[in-house]
Amino acid sequence: MIDVREVEPGVWSVIDGTRSVEIRLVGDEVRVNGVPVAVDTSDPRQWSPQAARGAVAGSAQVKSPMPGKVIEVLVMAGQEVAAGQGVVVVEAMKMQNQLKSPREGRVQAIHAKQGELVNAGAVLVTIE
């Protein structure tokens, strides 16, 4: 016998036999005893780490990890860059962050302009 109760909005108490578990659930966010569990309704067989990260074969993208403002573009198209070299400076929440090239290569394209507001996930620079 398993007993499930929503004890307050979004908080579920589950008693399975004698085992007691608290589940928190808001939108797509689920936590079991406080530990986040990713729930995905899509077929896990179709999921791949590559697809999830949006990796593009043969080139690497420098993306803005959150909404912010492009303060400076540190490279030019065609320029050779080293792995870890700073390519764009993005300001978010009063903090300037130098986004670095994930690998060695040549700057294929720059998609960001100085002063531009960008969304999370926006591709700023492509390295080939």
Binding site: D16, V21, I23, L25, V30, V32, V37
Partner: peptide, 8 residues
């Protein structure tokens, strides 16, 4: 726990 989470 994952199964519980999915069900909830």
């Amino acid at each position: 726990d994952r199964a519980l989470a999915a069900e909830a």
